[in-house]
């Protein structure tokens, strides 16, 4: 089926199989592979995107359900080539190792800081509890979010 989506502020069209997830459509049909395919069942957050401004797992959204809605992916966070503060902080804090969880965490952290300008350490932990990371043990991810919060 043919669907039309708003991704990072621009209209895109794709021909998808009806049972396809938004994640698969973004990655394979629409040219946005930044959202990652780690578990495809909402347990890891690697595919996190904003759907009408709400943080969701794109693996659990049917591509057809996103039609007519605004999708923001990790590719849409940087502003005209200038990294989002969260992105800068992830690099500076050493919060990236293999990086497969990073796009989802960056989107989730940006979402947190949009809603909560001064998050406590507990707020950060709870807000990121839907994002699994296997490399870092999370310590430097928390550092990055604190760093970004201070910079924003």
């Amino acid at each position: 089926m043919r669907i039309e989506l708003q991704i990072n502020g621009e209209a895109h069209e794709a021909d998808v199989w009806e049972g396809e997830s938004l994640l698969f459509a973004l990655r394979e049909q629409l040219g946005f592979p930044g959202s990652k395919n780690a578990c495809e069942q909402g347990e890891c957050g690697s595919c996190s995107v904003l759907l009408d401004g709400t943080l969701v797992c794109s693996c659990l959204v049917l591509a057809a359900q996103a039609e007519g809605h605004e999708v923001v992916t990790v590719e849409g966070l940087a502003d005209d080539g200038r990294l989002h503060k969260v992105q800068e902080a992830f690099v500076a804090a050493g919060a990236v190792q293999c990086g497969f969880c990073t796009p989802g965490l960056v989107v989730a952290a940006a979402d947190l800081l949009k809603r909560n300008v001064y998050p406590s350490d507990d707020d950060i932990r709870e807000a990121l509890s839907g994002n699994l990371c296997r490399c870092t043990g999370y310590a430097k991810i928390f550092d990055a979010v604190r760093m970004a919060a201070a910079a924003l």
Binding site: G45, T54, L60, V61, S129, G130
Partner: peptide, 9 residues
């Protein structure tokens, strides 16, 4: 329930 992403959907 799940993480925030799941609770949002």
């Amino acid at each position: 329930v799940g993480g925030p992403q799941i609770r949002n959907r």
